[in-house]
Design a protein around this nucleic acid. Structure first.
Lengths: 201, 201
DNA sequence: CAACATAAATTTACACTGTAAACAATCGTC
DNA sequence: GACGATTGTTTACAGTGTAAATTTATGTTG
């Protein structure tokens, strides 16, 4: 117990806690994880996390922010390959789906309606803004390349809505048993490409 | 306290409880409502609801089923007016949005990722199946009318995904401040109509 | 009609949750 | 070397969902 904690130590503990929380969430489900479990996973007494986070909601917000950061990083990585805007667009969509299906609990938490609004957590808000910008960047590129016309931000939100809607219906088990999610995503893609008038080579 | 309860009485109590739950959910938010509050709202002791529902999840499932039933009824009503299939389609989409925005807490509960899967609650499952069928019926009508080609169920799920995705992003506050939800829905409509090749008069 | 059996409702009790408040232990500073 | 502040722990509490025991009230029966 050092008398004073460097801000690096504080940040390190927070990171360790978020990591442990994320792991436990993925294992046992989010709502099944308790404060005491979390503390025990860090080998620390039940009240210690409260020295580093105001309350449980603050922990969830930090985990959400980390998830959005990973998410944005994946999208950016998927668009780093030097391809034409249309292909980058496809890669981004695929990365979006891959992330949601690889880390469903994280995706759940990111878009959980029961979580408090992000307004109270600046770090989380920043992560969301970054992810959102990442999603519109390639639309702007397509517009600049003359492959598409319209409001980039609005079109980006349309793509986002379609992806999010399909994934949520799938993750909540609302799709009919006869519906193949892959086919659905294929239909969505060709419909959007045609409907928006995106120029295909 | 009659000695034996007719099944009508049982059903009546369940209905009263669901109604009270729905009201409290809309007022104070879903997760803030407790079993004891619910019982008190019915003028009954805290354990009495357990005579009519196995546990809290069963109550939530019943409320969800009722919400899906109201939802399906709204959609059906919106499509009852004798218009051509395309207009009925528009009306259905509008009714979908109106319902979600008029009863956001109900819509939240219906598509809450934290709720147990509907497999354990046959009544709920039936309500969902009915709502889903309602959503594909007008697509089939358009195909039969020669205004559209393709798999009706798949296309229905695409419409559903777009509506659900836009609404969830809006309800979770994930839309950028510069995005007007009405504009977004307008763009979605014209894009789907054009992308799917729906014949417009 | 009185006594009982039984189903409905209540009361009590318990394990568990998040967290506030009091407490103990440890280190840099004078 | 003693002090004061800060970290971590212990204790305590109100509130949750719900299991078990208990009471209450009624339809049936001797």
């Amino acid at each position: 117990m050092p008398r004073v904690l460097s801000s690096e130590d504080v940040e390190a503990f927070r990171a360790r806690l978020c990591e442990a929380a994320q792991t436990l969430f993925a294992e046992r489900g989010i709502e099944a994880v308790t404060m005491r479990e979390l503390a025990q996973a860090l080998g620390v007494s039940p009240m210690t996390p409260y020295r580093y986070f105001k309350d449980k909601d603050a922990i969830l917000a930090a985990v959400r922010a980390a998830a959005f950061a990973r998410f944005a990083a994946r999208l950016e990585a998927a668009m780093a390959a030097p391809a034409d805007p249309l292909h980058r667009s496809r890669n981004a969509g695929q990365a979006y789906v891959d992330f949601a299906l690889a880390e469903p609990q994280a995706y759940r938490l990111m878009f959980d309606l029961n979580q408090p609004t992000e307004g109270d957590y600046p770090e989380l808000q920043g992560a969301i803004v970054r992810a959102r910008r990442t999603m519109t960047v390639h639309i702007e590129a397509m517009i600049e390349a003359g492959q598409l016309e319209g409001d980039a931000e609005l079109i980006g939100h349309l793509f986002w809505s379609v992806l999010h809607g399909m994934l949520m219906l799938q993750l909540t088990g609302k799709l009919a048993p006869t519906i193949d999610p892959v086919k659905l995503r294929g239909l969505a893609l060709v419909t959007l490409v045609k409907g928006l008038g995106i120029a295909t080579p």
